[in-house]
C-alpha cells in the first residue's frame, strides 16, 4: 500500500501549537470572580492561570460578604479573544466559583488601585516631589526630613505616570495593591 496525498514539507503548523496559529491581538480584560471564601480557593484560581499558561497582570482578593462567606477576586489578564473566553469558562468550572464577570465587556466600569511611594531626596527635588504629588492628589502618609511616603489612588495608568515622575526625584520603593474594579450604575 502507498502513502496517500503526502507531499513533503507541506506542514509548518504543529498540532500542539494552537495559539501561535491565531494572529489576533492580545486584549486586556478585567475579570471579577466571586468565590466561596474557603481554604485553597485562591490557589485554585492561580493554579488555573499558571497550569494553563494564562497571564496575570494583577490580582486582588478580599472577603466582601462576611455573612455569605464570599470573596471577590479581581484579575487583570490579557490574551486573544479566544483565550479570554477560555479563561472565563475555565474559571466558571472551578466548583467554589459562584460567578465570573468580564467587566471589560459588560459595560462601563471603574478601576482603582492604591499605591504607596517612598521618595527620598533633599532640596529642590524634595519640593518638586511634593508639588507633583499635589497635582496627582496624592496624600502624604509619612514624612521624615529626607523622605516622603505618598499614597496615590487611581487607575493603573495614573499610578504608572506618577511612578515615572518620581523616579528621577528619588523614588526608593513602591507598593501597589493591584486593581479593584466595579461595574458602573
Amino acid at each position: 500500500m502507498n502513502a496517500l496525498n503526502i507531499t513533503k514539507g507541506t506542514s509548518s503548523k504543529s498540532a500542539y501549537n494552537l495559539r501561535s496559529g491565531h494572529a489576533d491581538l492580545n486584549e486586556r480584560h478585567t475579570l471579577a470572580v466571586l468565590v466561596a471564601n474557603e481554604p485553597g480557593v485562591l490557589a485554585r484560581v492561580i493554579g488555573l492561570f499558571s497550569g494553563r499558561g494564562y497571564n496575570i497582570e494583577s490580582l486582588t482578593v478580599a472577603e466582601v460578604d462576611h455573612e455569605g462567606h464570599t470573596s471577590r477576586i479581581t484579575i487583570v489578564t490579557s490574551g486573544t479573544p479566544q483565550i479570554i473566553e477560555q479563561i472565563k469558562a475555565q474559571l466558571g468550572r472551578i466548583i467554589p466559583v459562584y460567578d465570573v464577570h468580564d467587566l471589560t465587556v459588560e459595560g462601563p466600569s471603574v478601576e482603582r488601585e492604591l499605591s504607596l511611594f517612598k521618595v527620598s531626596g533633599k532640596g529642590e527635588k524634595r519640593v518638586e516631589a511634593l508639588r507633583l504629588a499635589d497635582v496627582f492628589r496624592a496624600n502624604v502618609v509619612d514624612s521624615t526630613l529626607d523622605s516622603f511616603t505618598f499614597e496615590v489612588v487611581g487607575s493603573p495608568e495614573k499610578i504608572d505616570a506618577f511612578a515615572d515622575l518620581m523616579r528621577p526625584l528619588g523614588l526608593a520603593e513602591m507598593a501597589r495593591t493591584g486593581v479593584a474594579a466595579l461595574s458602573r450604575g
Partner: peptide, 23 residues
Amino acid sequence: SGKAHNEMLLGDAAIKGAIDASG
C-alpha cells in the same frame, strides 16, 4: 502529526519522508 485528515498513511510502505521535521 502535523498532517490533515486527508493525509493518512496506509500500510507500512513509503513511510520515509512522509512526516516532515515539523511533525
